[in-house]
């Protein structure tokens, strides 16, 4: 049976729609439409420059990708990067946030300092790090000093393991501040009275962290972990700029880079759309999995 709305509810509902419409319009235009369009295009053999109508090939683009070593290498590269960047980002940003909140002076300065790389453009960040990773750059000098291995070239941009590590380092440096700021906001929202009560009950700082801070910070942890994971799965600019600067492509050929090369360089827009839909499904699955396993909403103060 259809629910009847009273006058005030109708009015509120109308205002609700008024406020939501711009966001819906924006989402429909820039997110939903491209997803639907990509899903549709992925069913065709379509060259981006061709004026001929695309040929409908059903799921053949997907079948090709699932047989392609190149695509599986991209899956591997994406997951290697995500695991390498996502876990340290999550753990270190939480630790840094706790550390920053525990210092008496200079909290704002530390937040600003950690956040600064996030506002740098990826191109500038890559240029800075390319000079560090140059065989004659600071990367080799620092590591050789620390390891006492003078004159060793650690091949930051050449060796297949090192180039993956280099992209993770750049990404970690660039985004750590962003997640630190989110954690600080989450930590600040926990009521101070809980810590006072724990102190009266004789709890030490370690116990306070594990028994109060961590459980109550769960929604923020889930938010950061989902955001960090999605960001890592979508990583593109660092790998793109490294390859442009001479690094081998295969070790860091993440899915987004493969999508770009297939669509823009090789002009196969149907196949690259299929890749982007697979990436979309992967991201959707892991987001669902994280929400499912963490049950983020089961927290109350």
């Amino acid at each position: 049976m259809k629910k009847k709305y009273s006058g005030i509810e109708k009015k509120l509902s109308r205002w609700g729609w008024t406020f939501v419409t711009p966001a819906l319009l924006f989402f429909s235009l820039f997110s939903f439409y491209p997803i639907v369009n990509a899903a549709y295009t992925s069913l065709f053999r379509k060259k981006i420059l061709s004026l001929k109508p695309p040929t409908f090939i059903g799921l053949k683009n997907y079948a090709y990708l699932l047989r392609s070593d190149d695509f599986w290498n991209s899956i591997r590269a994406t997951f290697a990067f995500t695991l390498g960047a996502f876990l340290p980002l999550l753990v270190v940003s939480l630790l840094l946030a706790v550390l920053i909140l525990s210092v008496k002076r200079g909290q704002k300065f530390l937040q600003l300092a950690y956040y600064a790389p996030a506002v740098l453009s990826s191109v500038v960040a890559a240029v800075i790090w390319m000079s560090i990773f140059d065989p004659r750059g600071l990367g080799n000098q620092w590591l050789n000093f620390l390891l006492n291995t003078p004159g060793t070239d650690h091949k930051w941009l050449a060796d297949s393991f090192m180039v993956q590590l280099s992209t993770i380092l750049v990404y970690f440096w660039k985004y750590i501040g962003y997640f630190v700021v989110i954690f600080i906001a989450g930590l600040a929202a926990i009521p101070g009275s809980l810590y006072e009560a724990a102190l009266i009950d004789g709890a030490d700082r370690w116990q306070s962290f594990w028994r109060i801070t961590f459980p109550l910070l769960k929604p923020t942890v889930v938010l950061v972990s989902v955001m960090a994971m999605l960001q890592c799965l979508k990583t593109f600019s660092t790998q793109y700029l490294f390859v442009q600067s001479g690094s081998p492509q295969a070790p860091i050929n993440v899915i987004t880079l493969n999508i770009y090369n297939t669509g823009i360089r090789d002009h196969m827009i149907g196949r690259s759309s299929a890749m982007s839909i697979i990436l979309f499904i992967i991201m959707l699955f892991f987001t669902w999995l994280q929400f499912k396993t963490t049950k983020a909403d089961e927290v109350s103060y």
């Binding site: 004659r136 004159g151 060793t152 070239d153 442009q244």
Partner: peptide, 16 residues
């Protein structure tokens, strides 16, 4: 060279 690190090259290719 400084160890393995080249400090002066004779020639090098245009790799890309």
């Amino acid at each position: 060279r400084d160890g393995e690190i080249i400090t002066r090259r004779g020639f090098d290719f245009r790799y890309p």
